[in-house]
Amino acid sequence: MNHSDNLNEIRAIIAHHKRWDLLALIAGIIALMIAVLTFIALFGNMIIDGMPRLNWEFFTSFPSRKPEMAGILSAWVGTTLVMLVTAVAAVPLGVAAGVYLEEYAPKNFITEIIEINVTNLAGVPSIIYGLLALGLFVYELGLGQSILSAGLTLALLILPIVIVATREAIRSIPVSIREGAYALGATKWQTVADHVLPYSAAGIMTGIIIGLARAIGETAPIITIGALTFIAFLPPSPLQDQFPFISFEWLMEPFTVMPIQMFNWISRPQEAFQHNAAAAGLVLVIMTLLMNGLAIYLRYRLRKNIKW
C-alpha cells in the first residue's frame, strides 16, 4: 500500500465518523427546538391573549362577574402577603437547619438519616404538604384558612430547598478558610457568623429565591387548605396610621393567590375570562422571571469578590 492510498483511507474513515457527529448535532438541535418552541408557543399565546387586558385597572380591580371589569388586586396582594410569611418562616428555619447539619451535627447514623430525609422531602408532591397543613395548621392549631396557614404551608414546602441550598453554599467554602479562622482562636459560632455565613450568602440567597419562585406558583396545597376562589376585599393593612403603627390582623384573614385566581377564571365558560386568565398568567410568569433574575444578579454581585 503506498503513501497516498493510506492517506485516502484515513480520510475516508474520518469522513465516515464525522457523519455521526452531524447526526448527533441535528438530533440535539431538534430535541432542543421541541422544548424551546413549545415554551415560546405557550408564552406567545399567553401574551397574545393576555396583553390587551394588562392595564392599570387590571391590577387595581377586584374579581368581578363581568370579565372586562375583573382584576387581580386581591390575588397579587394575597400572593405578596403569603410570600412574605413564607420567607419569614422558611429563611431562618432553613438556614439554621443547614448550618446545624454542616457545622454542628456530629457525623453519625442519625445525622445521616436526617440528611437523607431532608433531601427526599424536596421530592414530596406538594398536595401532601397541603393535607398536612390542613390537619396541622388549619384545624389542630386553629389558624384557619388564613394567610398565615398558607404562608406556613408553603414555607414547609420550600424548607428542603433552602436547607439543601444552604448546605451546598456552606460546603463550597474551602476547609483552609475555616481552619484559618479556628487557628486564630475563633469559636464555632464566630467562624459561622464572621466567615461561613457571609461567604455563602450568595448561594443561600439564590436558594431562597428559587424556593420562593417555586412557592409562588403552587396551587394544590393552597386549594387544599381552603383558599377562597372569589374574594372582593383586601386584608387590613399591616401598616396603620395609629399607634402601634403595625398590625398583624392580616395574618388571620382569608385570601386568594394568583394561581387560584387563574384557575378560577379558566374554569369559566366565557372566552373573555380566558383572556383574564392569560393576563394573570403573564403577570405570574413575569414575577417568577424577575425573582430568578434577582437570584442571578445577587449571585453575580456577592460572588464577585470571592474566588477560592
Binding site: S176, I177, G180, H195, Y199, I306
Partner: peptide, 9 residues
Amino acid sequence: VFQKPNPFP
C-alpha cells in the same frame, strides 16, 4: 500559618 495562603475574602 498554613501551606496555601488562606486570607479571608
